[in-house]
Design a protein around this nucleic acid. Structure first.
Lengths: 350, 350
DNA sequence: TTGTATGCGTTATCAA
DNA sequence: TTGATAACGCATACAA
């Protein structure tokens, strides 16, 4: 109703007949002793006046914004889900999260980063693909702690830590799984534009092959070299027909496209080709055939990330309060690997 | 390097040998007259000290946060893409965007809304599904302008306006399209949990049937009544075999699931059934058969929304500056309908 | 247990 | 054209 100005601590103090300090103490439930009576008076006054604290003023005063930033390459698929989970986790720990998407444009990245620093975020979470070395240096010089996720390069050294999905191990597991399912030739269908996150997968693929032994035909293909529509021909040409060939894809979307092109060209999945993705997205579950993939423990990854950051920010109290399990962050600049779990579906069935 | 405190206007003023007021004037490029010399001095000092303005202090002082909130039911699919676009648009107009997902939980919604109001957001964008009447009332009482999108209920009246995707018209068009493609029976596969956004589609479906005339067999199915796996049987049972049957789905994901189940059960798409979705997501383009759908002009929807809000906030200047085309917002409480465009693909082909 | 007074970093008013 | 200085709303050290 009131197009009047918002009530302030001052108004509440007057209404309750106490001082602003007392109001502040009551409303922030601090560890100072307070009379039941005072608490009641203040809370009543606050409720009556519809008092709502002004975050800007509070942040300015305590010289801490209780805001953290999240810098992503985009919002679709994994990124969006991760963002959503990070937002939940942030609130759980009493923080506000500002999510930005760089669209993989370094100009945009620079601008957004500046925005984040202007907001005096207490910390920054950043995807390995979303930040240049120069930007990282700026953040570090600024004194803002930064924590990476899914980052496998020199940037790690500038961070308080890194929380990585163990896509390497996932790919190792994928090869082993396909081998067990009867595959006798193996292909990795990657995306080099994803840089390090692609290389991790390639390494896993390679080591997986080593693990199963035997000299099976195998190769790596990149989406940049072979158009989707040429993929079936390419695969059919070099794989042997006696046993099914396994195709490990960069993610579920690649797997989806790959599988559909194969089917479109008349190759049976999973009889002739078996397909595996990563991410366990909706599309993997509801494709036909449903796609074998790896599940990502979003909540776990977000929680580890936040606990690490909280620890660095000296917020042990909040961790204790939420005190699920004790968290021992690795040394500064260390890495936590988040394991993915195989979800077997028809696309790699028998 | 300096783990020291950030430079302030004060530091810059001292360094440049001017007053803080002058620094502020220079840095905000206000319409006060300034000497070239002063400008240079201040800018040099700022650069040298690595000055970065403190958003909290600025917001507090000017009593305006230049922050707007976006309340969504979730982050996947349309929501995520819309959020990403809204973020871009917000920056374009010099605003910061805080995105929250209610997860369709009213407890969460209430809490998030409180957070938003505590941040003194200048305005609020809200999805029709993400806000209860009670919450809306609270926002309005607070004096914060609210603009809805994809909202078709009483809430509209509490808003400065509503920007709706014209899914009604899309469904009308879909029926006409399917009819032209030879369909002689029609089905709508909906999701009543989406409430108003589902009803709009149903209305369009109904009016589309009326438009093509003739008494064709038709029906509406809801995902709540029929499990995905039973859908093919249900459809096959009541549609005639002489001519293909058309299935208009709530969105691309429903279409995707529907189509895959049909194929799985041996019904040919598009020969026996033709399928249409809405959203033009990645999955629609890359399915096999590729799914006919409707494209959403994200940027347009976001831009209209922001221009409307900016107008309400008295930021005509910024609109002019960006001055693409003139925007005449409807009367308060009015509605802008954003048209969707048909994307023909194989799933409804001949 | 509560109150006073000061600081947080900017912006804006008004006088110079 | 520039400089003092008073808000802005809250938190907190210290005094009472």
């Amino acid at each position: 109703m009131s197009d009047h100005r918002q009530a302030t601590v001052f108004d509440v103090a007057k209404e309750a007949g106490v001082s602003t300090a007392t109001v502040s103490n009551v409303l922030n439930r601090r560890n100072v002793p307070l009379t039941e009576e005072t608490i009641r008076k203040v809370e009543e006054a606050a409720a009556k006046l519809g008092y709502r604290r002004n975050v800007m003023a509070a942040s300015l005063s305590r010289r801490k914004s209780y805001e953290v930033g999240l810098l992503l390459p985009g919002f679709v698929g994994y990124y969006g889900l991760f963002a959503q989970q990070m937002e939940r986790t942030a609130h759980k720990y009493g923080y506000h999260l500002s999510v930005f998407s760089t669209d993989l444009d370094s100009k945009v990245e620079t601008r957004l980063l500046e925005k984040l620093l202007e907001r005096r975020v207490d910390g920054l979470f950043c995807h390995g693909l979303a930040m240049s070395e120069e930007s990282a240096r700026k953040v570090v010089n600024d004194g803002t702690p930064i924590l990476f996720f899914n980052c496998w390069n020199e940037l790690q050294r500038m961070a308080i830590g890194t929380v990585n999905l163990n896509v390497y191990q996932a790919c190792v597991d994928a090869v082993v799984h396909l081998h067990e399912q009867g595959c006798r030739s193996f292909y990795y269908y990657g995306n080099r534009r994803a840089f390090a996150t692609n290389e991790q997968r390639m390494n896993g693929f390679r080591d997986g092959l080593r693990l199963i032994g035997g000299a099976y035909p195998s190769d790596m293909i990149d989406t940049g070299d072979i158009a989707d529509k040429d993929l079936p021909g390419w695969l059919a040409e070099r794989s042997e027909e006696e046993a099914p060939a396994g195709v490990i894809c960069f993610d579920d979307w690649k797997a989806f496209v790959c599988q559909n092109r194969l089917i479109e060209c008349g190759y049976a999945v999973p009889e002739r080709f078996k397909v595996v993705g990563i991410n366990n997205e909706f599309v993997a579950e509801h494709s036909y055939p449903a796609i074998t993939t790896f599940n990502i423990p979003y909540e776990h990854q977000a929680d580890i990330s936040f606990r690490w950051m909280m620890t660095h920010l000296g917020e042990q109290a909040k961790l204790k309060a939420k005190g699920d399990k004790a968290f021992q962050p690795p040394d500064a600049g260390g890495e936590v690997k988040i394991p993915l779990t195989l979800v077997e579906r028809l696309s790699s069935g028998t």
